[in-house]
């Protein structure tokens, strides 16, 4: 029977992963090769036609490109916004730190629909954002923000900031202050200390933050669907449309597989490019 009792403990986790990850993904993978059905979601035979259709159509390449690119922009903006916040947090102690953690986590405490409807109200033509900008005299006429790519990016950055801040904060806290003192005693200015010491040593936090935000942003569905409207399509909206709107399960599955593989490719290339930095900076 079971020789190693440690394996017994792993069974729940393995079962969970098997049922909720391996099975569904295998299922989707298999589904993506099915022929389209007539009166049911999929047919009985296997075919490559869905992949041929996706790869042969510039429209899908465009949507895929927009999805991957938008996620990239969201990730970079998140990084730029989050780094100073994480820096500030890493210096905080006691109650101030608790308060900052709560502030950072606040976007996650609102339900996804409520948060996005909030953005719709805020960004409406006569909404508070436009009114404030006009009151400040920065614009003369209300800006059309709703159903633009810009608003989608803004809303995604807003909700993903915690995923970037927390790991970077963690990495910054692990940098010994004496390293900074050592560098400055050797003549480094604050800028040089940041460039040569702090930035590379915080990479063990930057890396997971970027991966996490990128993957989440690529897969985001509700925010693009609500705030992007009908005009700008992203892969997740397209996939959900095929699966629940037109009931083309095989084609929707093929789109999902293409999106997954592309994301894995991007993450893989990023990891490979930064592997050396990662290896060196893990203290």
């Amino acid at each position: 029977m079971m020789r190693n009792p440690k394996l017994l403990l792993a069974i729940p986790a393995i079962a969970l992963i098997f049922v909720f990850m391996i099975l569904p993904i295998t299922n989707i993978f298999e589904m993506s090769f099915r022929t389209p059905g007539q009166s049911e979601p999929f047919g009985d035979d296997y075919t490559m036609m869905h992949y041929d259709r996706i790869l042969g159509d510039a429209y899908y390449w465009g949507v895929l490109g927009r999805s991957l690119l938008t996620a990239g922009v969201v990730t970079l903006l998140c990084l730029i916004v989050s780094y100073p916040i994480a820096w500030h947090m890493s210096k905080a102690k006691g109650l101030k730190a608790v308060f900052l953690y709560a502030c950072i986590a606040s976007p996650l405490m609102t339900g996804v629909l409520v948060r996005n409807f909030g953005w719709m109200i805020a960004a409406a033509l006569n909404g508070p954002l436009n009114e404030t900008l006009m009151a400040l005299g920065l614009i003369e006429r209300p800006l059309r923000m709703l159903f633009t790519q810009g608003l989608v990016i803004l809303a995604l950055v807003h909700v993903f900031v915690p995923f970037m801040v927390l790991p970077i904060n963690n990495a910054l806290r692990n940098i010994s202050p004496t390293l900074i003192e050592a560098a400055s005693s050797m003549g480094a200015t604050r800028r040089e200390v940041f460039r040569d010491i702090i930035l590379p040593l915080s990479f063990p936090g930057i890396y997971p933050g970027m991966i996490l935000v990128y993957v989440l942003a690529v897969a985001a569905y509700v925010t693009p669907a609500l705030l992007g409207g009908q005009m700008v399509s992203y892969m997740p909206t397209l996939i959900i449309g095929e699966l629940t709107g037109t009931f083309q399960w095989p084609f929707g599955s093929a789109l999902a597989i293409v999106l997954s593989l592309s994301t894995i490719l991007v993450v893989g290339v990023f990891t490979a490019l930064t592997a050396r930095l990662m290896e060196w900076s893990k203290a």
Partner: peptide
């Protein structure tokens, strides 16, 4: 200031 400092925990740059 031009003071070289040797720290108790050495403070070598790990990367």
């Amino acid at each position: 200031r031009g003071f070289g400092v040797v720290f108790q925990n050495y403070a070598l740059f790990p990367h």
